[in-house]
Amino acid sequence: MINATIARITARGLFGRRRFLLLLPLPLLLVGLAVLARALGAPPAAVAKFVIVNLGFAAVLPVISLIVGTGVLGSEIDDGTLVHVLAKPLPRREIIVSKLAVAVVATAVTVGVPMFVGGLVAGSARLGIGLAVGCVVGAFAYSGLFLALSLLTRRPVLLGLLYVLLWEGLLGKLLGGTRVLSIQQYVTALAARVGDTDLFAGQVSVSVSVVMAIVFTVGGTLLAIDRLRSFSVAGETS
């Protein structure tokens, strides 16, 4: 299902682009703030709320997922290199699943490791593991969503930002019903359960979180596969 050649080219393309450098400051900031807060005597609950939930789950995870998720496919669509991959007798699911795998691994490592460290600093190894698990689940769901957006629209980054900032950030606070479609809420709920902590809690149940995370991942992947089957090269160039 995963094509090693596509995965390798995708990974090299992702890590070779300058915008991947944007990924580094946010996780470093996360760890730095957690360490600093604890050093200054902030209680674990405050570190968990302001650093882990408000910064980690609400900003670092979705933003890095967005950069990576749109980078693995959207960049190749923009610069036209995707045609080289598509002009091969490969099932389209193989292409999408390979790119999804790269996006998930890159996001999970980039965010999961600093979140694990943040959990250690704020509380315990168990909390750290819970946060890391939450990040892995979030990496799957966000990557599925942003991969599909890359094929549904010419402006996946803009739409992705609108989802993260408006839907999850603003509407999620004002309208309770919108939280059912908020990946951030699933991640928070699952991290709290696995981390066995009451320092923070999700606004949706664990079972709903699990089901909806699967829906986002599988649904986004299937949608992306279908759209890739009908991928058109636009424009009359000569």
Partner: peptide
């Protein structure tokens, strides 16, 4: 129908390469 690429080669006008 991706299977046609077994017998089809394409050099598009756009220059993009990795």
């Amino acid at each position: 129908n991706p299977s046609v690429y077994r017998q089809l080669g394409l050099v598009s006008e756009r220059e993009a390469v990795h």
